[in-house]
Simulated assay, not measured.
Amino acid sequence: MDYVSGFALGLSLIFAIGSQNAFILKQGIKKQHVFAICLFCALSDALLISAGVAGFGAVTAKYPNIVSLAKIAGALFLLGYGLQSLYASVSKSHALTQDNQQVSSLKKSLLLCFGFTWLNPHVYLDTLVLVGMVSTGADSKVQFGLGAISASFVFFFSLGYGARLLSPLFAKPKAWSILDALVGILMIYLAWYLFDFLPSLNRGDSYS
C-alpha cells in the first residue's frame, strides 16, 4: 500500500507540463538521445526522492535561501533558453523535419537536461520537501520512496518514447517553428514566474 501511495504521489507531482517535460517531449519528437535523457531525469528524481525520504527536506525547510538561489539560477537559465527557442522559431535557417534533423550532441542535450532538472526549484520542493514530509506517515518509507521513484521512471520513459507518436504532425518545418515558439513562451513565462516569487522568498515568507 505504501508503494502505491508513493507511486500515486510521485506521478501526480510530475505530471504537470513544465520546462523539463517540455524538453523531453521535444527530444522525443526529434528522436534524439531519448533513452539517455529519460534515464538522466529518472535517476535525478530517484536521488532527490531518496534524499527527501531520508529527511533532507528538513534542511531545505530550515534554510529557504537554498531554494531562493535555485530560483535565481533557474529563472536565468529558462529565460536564456526561452529566448533561444523564440529566435529559432523565426530563424530562416530553421528547418527541422523528420528527414532533415538538426542533431544536437549527447553532451549538449544532457547539459540542457541538467539545467532543466537541477536548476528547477520546484523539483526540490516536490521531492525533498513534499515527498519527504508525506513519507513520514508511511509504515514503510522505503516502499513509499520506491513507489515515487518508479513513477518517475514510468512517466519519463513514457513521455520520451510516446512523443514519437506525434511525429506525423511534425513533417513540415512550420510545425517545428510553432513548437519552438510555444516552448519559448513557456520557458519565458516560467522564468517570470520564478522572478515574481523572489521578493517573498527574500523576506523569509513561505515558499510552498
Rank of each mutant, 00 (worst) to 15 (best):
Y63V: 11
L194E: 04
F15C: 06
V154Y: 04
K108E: 06
F40D: 07
F15S: 07
Y81L: 13
A73D: 01
A8D: 03
A70N: 00
F35S: 12
Y81A: 08
G74L: 03
V4C: 00
A70L: 14
S5D: 13
I72A: 04
V129G: 00
S208M: 13
S135W: 01
I188Q: 01
M133D: 09
T136V: 03
N21R: 09
V53R: 10
F153P: 02
F144C: 08
K30G: 08
G184R: 13
I17H: 06
L11N: 01
K62R: 15
F116T: 03
Q84T: 04
L39T: 10
I178D: 02
G6W: 08
V4P: 00
T117R: 00
V103G: 07
L182F: 14
L198F: 09
G145L: 05
V183S: 09
Y193M: 13
T97F: 08
S206R: 05
D180P: 00
A16F: 09
W118D: 08
Y87F: 11
V134I: 07
I66L: 15
M1L: 08
F156V: 02
D99H: 11
L194D: 09
S152R: 02
A73K: 00
Y189D: 07
D45F: 12
Q27D: 01
S177H: 10
G28N: 02
Y124W: 07
A151L: 02
F77C: 11
A58C: 01
G115T: 05
S208A: 12
P64A: 10
F156M: 11
G147S: 03
V154E: 07
Y63S: 05
S150P: 05
F40E: 08
K71N: 09
S93P: 01
A151I: 07
P121T: 11
K71A: 13
F23L: 14
S135E: 01
Y63D: 07
V103Y: 05
I188R: 05
V4I: 15
A151F: 02
V154S: 06
A95C: 15
V103W: 05
V103Q: 11
V154M: 07
K174C: 02
A46V: 04
M133F: 06
K174T: 09
S152P: 01
L76Y: 04
